[in-house]
């Protein structure tokens, strides 16, 4: 009898503690929200960031965007071009029928239905609410499945130890990375263009236009309405955030 009442009271104490714990966690998640809400707004589904690339303005010999990107993110040459990171690359094309030549930068296309996000086993490859596709390097295990899945060859695996990183671009051996659409600039919310677009404008090409695809009044949306822009590999139906005109 004694032992029964003992166990009942023990159970009661346990339940009391459980209740306390529940209340505490409810309270703490409330403060959590409050702390977060008190600062910036962060990525929101109201926006969808994207690029419009006018290949007519892009010239074949120029790689200002590539240099600009590399400088911004501290991507140094390693002497081994096959293994170093390639966030953005320049491609020169020729039409098989007409012989017309064009040139363009190719980078992460920030797909709405990104294959890299689908295949990532840990969810490290993810899409922010504002459409930017990123790698969360804290949970990336370096399996490189996303590199296999990307139709645009836009992802790079870091093959060597990296030092002298920029504080805005943490990068390290054994993980995968790609164009972030200069997400640190987007979050700073100062209206700054991504590094590639900035570098392109500096060279007076203005071939890369950055903006909000969700905002019908943004320059990029108006441009998209006027010109016939294409998605690269539109057959895959990925709904890319980077579009090209003049191809």
């Amino acid at each position: 009898m004694q032992s029964t009442s003992n166990s009942v009271s023990a159970r009661r104490r346990f339940l009391q503690k459980l209740g306390l714990l529940g209340a505490a966690s409810a309270l703490s998640s409330y403060t959590l929200i409050e702390v977060s809400a008190s600062t910036a707004q962060g990525a929101s589904a109201v926006n969808r960031w994207g690029l419009l690339i006018d290949t007519a303005k892009c010239s074949a010999g120029c790689d200002a965007c590539v240099t600009g990107c590399n400088e911004e993110h501290g991507i140094d040459a390693t002497g081994r071009d096959d293994t170093r990171a390639q966030w953005i690359r320049k491609i020169d094309l020729q039409d098989n029928l007409t012989g017309r030549e064009s040139s363009l930068p190719m980078m992460c296309q920030h797909c709405a239905s990104a294959p890299c996000v689908d295949v990532c086993p840990t969810g490290a490859s993810f899409k922010r609410d504002d459409g930017v596709v990123l790698v969360n390097k804290h949970t990336c295990i370096g399996c490189r499945y996303c590199v296999m899945a990307c139709p645009y060859k836009a992802r790079s695996f870091i093959h060597e130890t990296i030092s002298n990183q920029k504080s805005i671009a943490p990068r390290g051996k054994g993980t995968v990375e790609s164009c972030t659409l200069c997400v640190h600039r987007i979050d700073a919310n100062t209206g700054q263009q991504p590094a590639c677009a900035e570098a392109c404008s500096k060279d007076a090409h203005d071939a890369i236009l950055f903006g909000d695809l969700n905002n019908p009044d943004s320059e990029i949306s108006r441009s998209l309405k006027q010109h016939k822009a294409i998605e690269v590999r539109s057959d895959l139906g990925l709904n890319t955030g980077v579009r090209y005109t003049g191809l």
Partner: peptide, 21 residues
């Protein structure tokens, strides 16, 4: 803070590693 920053894009919060460094 790391999850807030990477996933939600909240960067001007007090506990960022950049500030620590």
């Amino acid at each position: 803070q790391r999850d807030e920053t990477v996933i939600k894009g909240l960067r001007d919060e007090p506990f960022s590693l950049v500030e620590c460094v």
